[in-house]
Simulated scan of single mutants.
Amino acid sequence: MTTTDLTDTAAIRITRDDLKWWLERIHELDWVFAVTYAQGAPHEYVNAGRTPGFTHEDSVRAARVIRTFGQPAKFFNSTRIYLEDGRGWKYWDMADTDVTVSNIINRGRVEHVYGVQNAPHTASGVESGYDAVATDWDRALGATADERTELTELIGSLGRFTNRRVLDIGCGTGLALDLGITESVRYVGVDPSQGMLNTLVMKYPHLAGVHAMTYGQALERRVLGGTKFDLVLALGGSASYLTDQDLDDIDRHAAGPVVLSVFGDGENAAVQDLAAVETSRARGRFSSHAASRGGFTSTVGRFDLAVLRAPSR
């Protein structure tokens, strides 16, 4: 498994080389049929420490591959991420939100369905730089403790949104839900990174909506319908990716305040996918938009924030 310093903290990256490793490794393992599930959920498994040549490190690496390149589906009442190998098998791990405790990898036939299937769709069809670090984002690259505290205080000063509808643009792994800003059943996330959305769904299986696309695509495809949200967010620098048109159309789905975040001066995305000139232009667009809306700006850790007043009705 490779690691790369994306910020001051080494973040574990999962790439297509890891995917290739797993798709070859599966043919070398001794898969055991799960006898106790023979009737209701037939599948096979390998167990770290019991399966010859399969270590805990192998299991964790495999689980990260599955969660990066797979898709959410239900295993009866639980939500898992399933990876299909193109040969009729699908694979999933048995850890919950902490992938590092993975010791068992299951596989079943793709035609086998385990309960009602109502999990969100996370595949955007676009490879994102965030995919590679998604399974380690919260530990290594997410908001710091100080940033979380400041964000909670700032958003709390705008009102109480626990029981209100929230739209999160560039939602990633769900920082807004981690902060307790609203409930998952009132939360709609938009993000083009399949890996990040998979992490979000593993943490919060019951979401009001997940849209695997950019905000511009969400507007073009009208996936949000005519819904107005009580709070619109673009945290963690996500507003740096919004176009002028996206910003102009931000009110289309806002019935309350809008909180936009861009990378601060000298900062960049953890995956380094924005040029310095792009982050600079984003800050300029952001400041102009805030001023035109009578809002205010603030700095939280690595990010500049603009808080826009609720649009006039």
Rank of each mutant, 00 (worst) to 15 (best):
M1Y: 03
T4K: 07
D8P: 02
A11W: 01
T15Q: 03
K20W: 09
I26L: 10
H27D: 15
E28Y: 05
E28M: 12
W31A: 09
T36S: 13
Y37I: 00
Y37Q: 15
Y37V: 07
H43E: 12
Y45A: 06
N47V: 13
T51P: 15
T55D: 06
E57S: 10
P72E: 02
A73I: 02
K74G: 01
R80P: 10
I81F: 00
Y82K: 04
D85C: 09
G86P: 05
G88E: 14
W89H: 10
W92K: 01
D93P: 10
A95R: 04
T100Y: 02
N106P: 11
R109G: 13
V110K: 00
G115D: 10
V116P: 14
Q117R: 08
N118L: 08
T122W: 01
A123T: 14
Y130H: 07
A132M: 07
A134H: 04
W137I: 09
L141V: 08
T144N: 06
T149N: 07
E150A: 15
E150C: 07
E153Y: 01
L154M: 13
L158H: 01
R160M: 04
R165V: 08
I169A: 09
C171L: 04
C171G: 01
G172M: 02
G174P: 05
A176R: 00
D178S: 12
E183R: 12
R186P: 12
R186G: 00
V190L: 15
L200Q: 02
Y204M: 01
A208H: 09
H211F: 13
R221V: 04
R222W: 05
R222D: 15
F229E: 08
D230R: 00
D230M: 04
L233Y: 00
A234L: 15
G237K: 10
A239E: 09
L242E: 11
R252C: 12
R252E: 14
A255N: 08
V258C: 06
V258N: 05
L260Q: 04
L260G: 07
D265M: 03
A269Y: 02
V271S: 03
L274I: 03
L274Q: 06
S280V: 12
S280R: 11
H289E: 12
H289Q: 08
A290G: 13
A291C: 11
G294R: 04
V300H: 03
G301Y: 02
R302Y: 03
A306L: 04
